[in-house]
Write a protein that binds this DNA or RNA. Structure first.
Lengths: 143, 143
DNA sequence: ATACCTGCAAATGTTTTGCGACTAA
DNA sequence: TTAGTCGCAAAACATTTGCAGGTAT
Protein backbone atom coordinates (compact mmCIF):
# COMPACT_ATOMS: atom_id res chain seq x y z
CA UNK A 1 0.00 0.00 0.00
CA UNK A 2 1.26 3.40 -0.96
CA UNK A 3 2.09 5.86 1.74
CA UNK A 4 0.79 9.40 1.89
CA UNK A 5 4.15 10.72 0.77
CA UNK A 6 4.22 8.47 -2.25
CA UNK A 7 0.74 9.52 -3.24
CA UNK A 8 1.72 13.13 -2.81
CA UNK A 9 4.86 12.75 -4.91
CA UNK A 10 2.89 11.00 -7.63
CA UNK A 11 0.28 13.73 -7.60
CA UNK A 12 2.90 16.45 -7.93
CA UNK A 13 4.65 14.66 -10.76
CA UNK A 14 1.44 14.03 -12.63
CA UNK A 15 0.38 17.66 -12.35
CA UNK A 16 3.67 19.34 -12.99
CA UNK A 17 3.87 20.73 -9.49
CA UNK A 18 7.33 21.18 -8.07
CA UNK A 19 8.58 20.07 -4.72
CA UNK A 20 9.11 22.77 -2.16
CA UNK A 21 10.37 22.73 1.36
CA UNK A 22 7.47 24.79 2.66
CA UNK A 23 4.80 22.60 1.13
CA UNK A 24 6.46 19.48 2.41
CA UNK A 25 6.68 20.96 5.86
CA UNK A 26 2.99 21.75 5.82
CA UNK A 27 2.22 18.20 4.74
CA UNK A 28 4.53 16.82 7.40
CA UNK A 29 2.83 18.83 10.12
CA UNK A 30 -0.57 17.83 8.82
CA UNK A 31 0.23 14.12 8.65
CA UNK A 32 1.83 14.03 12.08
CA UNK A 33 -1.08 15.66 13.83
CA UNK A 34 -4.06 13.43 14.48
CA UNK A 35 -6.39 16.33 15.02
CA UNK A 36 -8.59 18.51 12.86
CA UNK A 37 -6.30 21.47 12.28
CA UNK A 38 -7.26 24.93 11.10
CA UNK A 39 -5.12 26.81 8.59
CA UNK A 40 -4.03 29.09 11.39
CA UNK A 41 -2.83 26.15 13.49
CA UNK A 42 -1.09 24.64 10.49
CA UNK A 43 0.48 28.03 9.88
CA UNK A 44 1.93 28.31 13.37
CA UNK A 45 3.09 24.70 13.48
CA UNK A 46 4.72 25.02 10.07
CA UNK A 47 6.49 28.17 11.20
CA UNK A 48 8.60 26.02 13.52
CA UNK A 49 10.19 24.36 10.53
CA UNK A 50 9.91 27.21 8.05
CA UNK A 51 9.93 30.42 10.11
CA UNK A 52 9.53 32.63 7.05
CA UNK A 53 6.45 30.79 5.77
CA UNK A 54 3.38 32.88 5.02
CA UNK A 55 -0.26 32.20 5.70
CA UNK A 56 -0.94 32.16 1.96
CA UNK A 57 1.58 29.44 1.39
CA UNK A 58 -0.09 27.22 3.97
CA UNK A 59 -3.44 27.91 2.37
CA UNK A 60 -2.08 27.05 -1.06
CA UNK A 61 -0.35 23.94 0.28
CA UNK A 62 -3.56 22.65 1.86
CA UNK A 63 -5.36 23.12 -1.43
CA UNK A 64 -2.79 20.91 -3.16
CA UNK A 65 -2.90 18.39 -0.33
CA UNK A 66 -6.69 18.23 -0.57
CA UNK A 67 -6.54 17.88 -4.34
CA UNK A 68 -4.07 15.06 -3.92
CA UNK A 69 -6.71 13.26 -1.88
CA UNK A 70 -4.82 13.36 1.41
CA UNK A 71 -6.91 15.90 3.26
CA UNK A 72 -10.49 17.06 3.36
CA UNK A 73 -12.10 20.22 4.57
CA UNK A 74 -14.46 19.97 7.52
CA UNK A 75 -16.86 22.71 8.50
CA UNK A 76 -18.42 22.59 11.97
CA UNK A 77 -20.34 25.81 11.35
CA UNK A 78 -18.21 27.95 13.60
CA UNK A 79 -16.76 29.89 10.70
CA UNK A 80 -13.41 28.14 10.72
CA UNK A 81 -12.37 25.52 8.21
CA UNK A 82 -10.55 22.53 9.58
CA UNK A 83 -8.79 19.75 7.73
CA UNK A 84 -8.97 16.07 8.47
CA UNK A 85 -6.99 13.15 7.15
CA UNK A 86 -8.59 11.46 4.22
CA UNK A 87 -6.19 8.84 2.95
CA UNK A 88 -6.50 5.54 4.78
CA UNK A 89 -9.45 6.80 6.76
CA UNK A 90 -12.83 5.47 5.76
CA UNK A 91 -15.76 7.82 5.54
CA UNK A 92 -17.32 8.87 8.81
CA UNK A 93 -19.72 11.37 10.26
CA UNK A 94 -19.29 13.72 13.19
CA UNK A 95 -20.88 14.11 16.57
CA UNK A 96 -20.05 17.66 17.66
CA UNK A 97 -20.50 19.06 21.15
CA UNK A 98 -21.90 22.58 20.83
CA UNK A 99 -20.66 23.44 24.30
CA UNK A 100 -17.02 22.41 24.39
CA UNK A 101 -16.36 21.83 20.73
CA UNK A 102 -15.05 18.30 21.01
CA UNK A 103 -16.26 15.83 18.49
CA UNK A 104 -16.36 12.12 17.83
CA UNK A 105 -16.14 10.39 14.51
CA UNK A 106 -18.91 7.89 13.98
CA UNK A 107 -20.03 5.59 11.27
CA UNK A 108 -23.21 3.67 10.62
CA UNK A 109 -23.56 1.57 7.51
CA UNK A 110 -27.29 1.31 7.90
CA UNK A 111 -27.64 5.07 7.69
CA UNK A 112 -25.38 5.17 4.65
CA UNK A 113 -27.56 2.59 2.93
CA UNK A 114 -30.74 4.47 3.73
CA UNK A 115 -29.22 7.65 2.37
CA UNK A 116 -28.39 5.89 -0.90
CA UNK A 117 -31.91 4.54 -1.09
CA UNK A 118 -33.48 7.89 -0.34
CA UNK A 119 -31.37 9.62 -3.00
CA UNK A 120 -32.12 6.97 -5.57
CA UNK A 121 -35.85 7.32 -5.00
CA UNK A 122 -35.51 10.98 -5.96
CA UNK A 123 -33.37 10.27 -8.99
CA UNK A 124 -30.18 11.57 -7.41
CA UNK A 125 -26.76 9.98 -7.62
CA UNK A 126 -24.82 10.78 -4.46
CA UNK A 127 -21.24 11.92 -4.82
CA UNK A 128 -20.60 12.72 -1.20
CA UNK A 129 -22.57 13.50 1.86
CA UNK A 130 -22.23 15.22 5.15
CA UNK A 131 -23.89 14.23 8.38
CA UNK A 132 -23.26 16.21 11.49
CA UNK A 133 -24.98 15.68 14.79
CA UNK A 134 -24.75 18.69 17.07
CA UNK A 135 -25.47 18.26 20.73
CA UNK A 136 -23.97 17.91 24.17
CA UNK A 137 -21.29 15.40 25.02
CA UNK A 138 -21.48 13.34 28.18
CA UNK A 139 -19.31 15.74 30.17
CA UNK A 140 -21.19 18.86 29.16
CA UNK A 141 -24.54 17.30 30.00
CA UNK A 142 -23.41 16.74 33.57
CA UNK A 143 -22.50 20.37 34.16
CA UNK B 1 -52.43 27.44 15.97
CA UNK B 2 -50.47 30.64 16.13
CA UNK B 3 -49.41 32.27 12.93
CA UNK B 4 -45.86 33.33 12.17
CA UNK B 5 -46.81 36.95 12.77
CA UNK B 6 -48.24 36.19 16.17
CA UNK B 7 -45.16 34.28 17.18
CA UNK B 8 -43.02 37.12 15.93
CA UNK B 9 -45.03 39.73 17.83
CA UNK B 10 -44.86 37.64 20.99
CA UNK B 11 -41.11 37.21 20.60
CA UNK B 12 -40.60 40.95 20.18
CA UNK B 13 -42.75 41.75 23.20
CA UNK B 14 -41.02 39.22 25.38
CA UNK B 15 -37.58 40.50 24.46
CA UNK B 16 -38.30 44.19 24.49
CA UNK B 17 -37.72 44.54 20.78
CA UNK B 18 -39.68 47.25 19.05
CA UNK B 19 -41.70 46.94 15.90
CA UNK B 20 -40.23 48.52 12.83
CA UNK B 21 -41.44 48.84 9.29
CA UNK B 22 -38.19 47.59 7.82
CA UNK B 23 -38.04 44.49 9.95
CA UNK B 24 -41.64 43.68 9.21
CA UNK B 25 -41.03 44.12 5.53
CA UNK B 26 -38.10 41.71 5.68
CA UNK B 27 -40.26 39.20 7.51
CA UNK B 28 -43.08 39.68 5.03
CA UNK B 29 -40.76 39.08 2.08
CA UNK B 30 -39.28 36.05 3.80
CA UNK B 31 -42.63 34.50 4.65
CA UNK B 32 -44.09 35.07 1.21
CA UNK B 33 -41.20 33.46 -0.63
CA UNK B 34 -41.16 29.69 -0.59
CA UNK B 35 -37.54 29.51 -1.53
CA UNK B 36 -34.22 29.48 0.29
CA UNK B 37 -33.28 33.14 0.10
CA UNK B 38 -29.86 34.68 0.63
CA UNK B 39 -29.45 37.92 2.55
CA UNK B 40 -28.68 39.61 -0.73
CA UNK B 41 -31.95 38.42 -2.26
CA UNK B 42 -33.86 39.43 0.83
CA UNK B 43 -32.13 42.79 0.65
CA UNK B 44 -33.21 43.44 -2.94
CA UNK B 45 -36.75 42.17 -2.39
CA UNK B 46 -37.14 44.25 0.76
CA UNK B 47 -35.93 47.30 -1.13
CA UNK B 48 -39.18 47.24 -3.11
CA UNK B 49 -41.12 48.02 0.03
CA UNK B 50 -38.45 49.96 1.88
CA UNK B 51 -36.21 51.53 -0.79
CA UNK B 52 -33.89 53.09 1.78
CA UNK B 53 -33.28 49.83 3.63
CA UNK B 54 -29.66 48.84 4.22
CA UNK B 55 -28.00 45.48 3.93
CA UNK B 56 -27.16 45.59 7.63
CA UNK B 57 -30.78 46.03 8.57
CA UNK B 58 -31.75 42.92 6.60
CA UNK B 59 -28.94 41.01 8.26
CA UNK B 60 -30.08 42.19 11.70
CA UNK B 61 -33.71 41.42 10.90
CA UNK B 62 -32.89 37.87 9.85
CA UNK B 63 -31.04 37.34 13.10
CA UNK B 64 -34.15 38.34 15.04
CA UNK B 65 -36.34 36.22 12.79
CA UNK B 66 -34.09 33.21 13.33
CA UNK B 67 -34.02 33.81 17.07
CA UNK B 68 -37.80 33.96 17.05
CA UNK B 69 -37.78 30.45 15.60
CA UNK B 70 -39.25 31.39 12.25
CA UNK B 71 -36.18 30.95 10.07
CA UNK B 72 -33.11 28.83 10.01
CA UNK B 73 -29.78 29.25 8.30
CA UNK B 74 -28.85 26.73 5.64
CA UNK B 75 -25.34 26.32 4.31
CA UNK B 76 -24.85 24.41 1.08
CA UNK B 77 -21.09 24.93 1.18
CA UNK B 78 -21.00 27.48 -1.59
CA UNK B 79 -20.09 30.30 0.74
CA UNK B 80 -23.51 31.88 0.81
CA UNK B 81 -25.92 31.56 3.71
CA UNK B 82 -29.51 30.94 2.84
CA UNK B 83 -32.56 30.98 5.08
CA UNK B 84 -35.39 28.51 5.10
CA UNK B 85 -38.74 28.56 6.85
CA UNK B 86 -38.73 26.82 10.15
CA UNK B 87 -42.11 27.35 11.75
CA UNK B 88 -44.71 24.84 10.65
CA UNK B 89 -42.14 22.95 8.64
CA UNK B 90 -40.96 19.70 10.11
CA UNK B 91 -37.31 18.89 10.08
CA UNK B 92 -35.88 17.69 6.81
CA UNK B 93 -32.60 17.02 5.11
CA UNK B 94 -31.33 18.20 1.74
CA UNK B 95 -30.39 16.52 -1.50
CA UNK B 96 -28.26 19.08 -3.33
CA UNK B 97 -27.24 18.88 -6.98
CA UNK B 98 -23.60 19.93 -7.25
CA UNK B 99 -24.06 20.73 -10.93
CA UNK B 100 -27.12 22.94 -11.14
CA UNK B 101 -27.60 23.85 -7.51
CA UNK B 102 -31.18 22.71 -7.19
CA UNK B 103 -32.10 20.80 -4.10
CA UNK B 104 -34.87 18.65 -2.73
CA UNK B 105 -36.01 18.41 0.84
CA UNK B 106 -36.19 14.87 2.09
CA UNK B 107 -37.02 13.15 5.29
CA UNK B 108 -36.48 9.65 6.58
CA UNK B 109 -37.60 8.71 10.05
CA UNK B 110 -35.52 5.59 10.09
CA UNK B 111 -32.35 7.60 9.57
CA UNK B 112 -33.39 10.01 12.30
CA UNK B 113 -33.89 7.13 14.71
CA UNK B 114 -30.53 5.61 13.87
CA UNK B 115 -28.86 8.96 14.42
CA UNK B 116 -30.45 9.20 17.84
CA UNK B 117 -29.30 5.70 18.67
CA UNK B 118 -25.78 6.34 17.45
CA UNK B 119 -25.50 9.53 19.49
CA UNK B 120 -26.87 7.89 22.59
CA UNK B 121 -24.34 5.08 22.35
CA UNK B 122 -21.62 7.72 22.54
CA UNK B 123 -23.22 9.56 25.42
CA UNK B 124 -24.33 12.51 23.29
CA UNK B 125 -27.67 14.29 23.45
CA UNK B 126 -28.52 15.62 20.03
CA UNK B 127 -29.81 19.15 19.80
CA UNK B 128 -29.92 19.40 16.04
CA UNK B 129 -28.37 17.72 13.10
CA UNK B 130 -27.57 18.35 9.53
CA UNK B 131 -27.61 15.83 6.74
CA UNK B 132 -26.77 16.92 3.25
CA UNK B 133 -26.44 14.60 0.30
CA UNK B 134 -24.47 16.14 -2.54
CA UNK B 135 -24.74 14.60 -5.98
CA UNK B 136 -26.29 14.89 -9.39
CA UNK B 137 -30.00 15.32 -9.95
CA UNK B 138 -31.81 13.33 -12.61
CA UNK B 139 -31.50 16.06 -15.22
CA UNK B 140 -27.80 16.66 -14.70
CA UNK B 141 -27.02 12.95 -14.89
CA UNK B 142 -28.53 12.81 -18.36
CA UNK B 143 -26.34 15.56 -19.75
C1' DA C 1 15.82 29.01 -19.26
C1' DT C 2 11.33 28.47 -17.86
C1' DA C 3 7.63 27.76 -15.20
C1' DC C 4 6.53 27.09 -10.78
C1' DC C 5 6.74 28.88 -5.86
C1' DT C 6 7.23 32.27 -2.20
C1' DG C 7 6.18 36.05 1.12
C1' DC C 8 4.09 40.17 1.40
C1' DA C 9 0.42 43.16 0.95
C1' DA C 10 -3.76 44.05 -0.98
C1' DA C 11 -8.06 42.18 -2.45
C1' DT C 12 -12.02 39.35 -1.82
C1' DG C 13 -16.64 38.42 -0.34
C1' DT C 14 -19.89 38.03 3.09
C1' DT C 15 -21.66 39.49 7.32
C1' DT C 16 -21.31 42.40 11.44
C1' DT C 17 -20.42 46.54 14.15
C1' DG C 18 -19.94 51.59 15.43
C1' DC C 19 -22.05 55.80 15.12
C1' DG C 20 -24.96 59.85 15.09
C1' DA C 21 -29.55 60.61 13.81
C1' DC C 22 -34.21 58.92 14.18
C1' DT C 23 -38.46 56.97 16.26
C1' DA C 24 -41.71 53.74 18.56
C1' DA C 25 -43.73 53.20 22.95
C1' DT D 1 -38.14 60.47 27.52
C1' DT D 2 -35.35 56.81 26.38
C1' DA D 3 -33.89 52.70 24.68
C1' DG D 4 -34.34 50.31 20.50
C1' DT D 5 -33.50 51.09 15.21
C1' DC D 6 -31.93 52.95 11.11
C1' DG D 7 -28.66 53.66 7.07
C1' DC D 8 -24.22 54.35 6.11
C1' DA D 9 -19.52 53.43 6.19
C1' DA D 10 -16.03 51.01 8.22
C1' DA D 11 -14.60 46.79 10.43
C1' DA D 12 -14.23 42.16 10.89
C1' DC D 13 -12.97 37.68 9.43
C1' DA D 14 -10.98 33.83 7.04
C1' DT D 15 -9.10 32.98 2.83
C1' DT D 16 -7.33 34.09 -1.81
C1' DT D 17 -4.90 36.64 -5.35
C1' DG D 18 -1.40 39.77 -7.66
C1' DC D 19 3.11 40.69 -7.97
C1' DA D 20 8.11 40.91 -8.17
C1' DG D 21 11.74 38.29 -6.81
C1' DG D 22 13.50 33.54 -5.97
C1' DT D 23 14.15 28.55 -7.22
C1' DA D 24 13.56 23.64 -8.70
C1' DT D 25 14.10 20.99 -12.74
Amino acid sequence: MKSEWEIFAAYLRKNGIRRSEQRENVLDVFLKTEKHLTIEELYFLSKKKSPEIGYATVSRAMKVICDAGLAEKVDFEDGITRFEHKFGHEHHDHLVCVNCGTFIEVRNDEIEKLQEKMAKSKGFTIIRHKLQLFGLCRECQNK
